[in-house]
């Protein structure tokens, strides 16, 4: 299925999640490297924001799989094509995996889970410190990979928008499309 650009719903989700995800990665990094009040302030943002991003990621992935998406321009060499597709699916994977690992990790460590509408979330796993240790490390490593992917994604997006001007950025842009891009 192809389309001239991503659906409005997908574009709105992209630009809603983009600043939140970037903030989330910086919040997560900052909250474990300070003992000031920021530790608690950021932690209290991190958990509900993570849950909200999980809901948005599930919705986004469903829309992505069900709606037509634009094809990459034929001018793009095969290596960049592969990088583009690979990094997008890795990004989707991180979006889904990070909050789920966080949730599972808190469950395995027998920590109370964030509140949702007055009740606590159900645990994803029974308490087990070995599982906690593994998931806790994974949360850090995958978070670092996620940041590198986001960094590459932003730079590639800017390159498409400012240098290549091949319509790739226009496909996700929220700007109303006037002329077809160069």
């Amino acid at each position: 299925m192809t389309a001239p650009r991503f659906s409005l719903a997908l574009r709105l989700l992209h630009w809603t999640m983009a600043p939140l995800l970037l903030a989330m990665l910086l919040i997560g990094t900052g909250m474990v490297t300070t003992v000031s009040h920021w530790h608690l302030t950021l932690l209290n943002l991190h958990k509900p924001l993570g849950l909200a991003l999980l809901v948005l990621a599930v919705l986004r992935l469903l829309l992505r799989l069900l709606s037509p998406v634009p094809a990459l321009p034929s001018s793009l060499p095969p290596a960049l094509r592969l990088a583009a597709h690979g990094s997008h699916w890795l990004l989707y994977g991180c979006m889904l995996a990070m909050p789920l690992i966080g949730w599972a990790m808190l469950s395995a460590g027998n920590f109370p889970l964030p509140l949702l509408a007055g009740t606590t979330l159900p645990p994803l796993l029974p308490p087990n410190v070995a599982h906690y240790a593994l998931l806790r490390s994974l949360h850090t490593v995958l978070g670092e990979l996620f940041f590198v992917l986001v960094l590459g994604h932003i730079i590639a997006g800017l390159a498409h928008a400012l240098l290549l001007r091949d319509g790739v950025f226009g496909a996700i842009s929220l700007r109303r499309r006037r002329q077809p891009d160069n």
Binding site: L26, I27, T29, G30, T34, V35, S36
Partner: peptide, 13 residues
């Protein structure tokens, strides 16, 4: 965020 720019920051580590 990671504290690399502020080595004097007190961290859990």
């Amino acid at each position: 965020a990671a504290g690399w720019l502020s080595p004097e920051r007190l961290t859990p580590a």
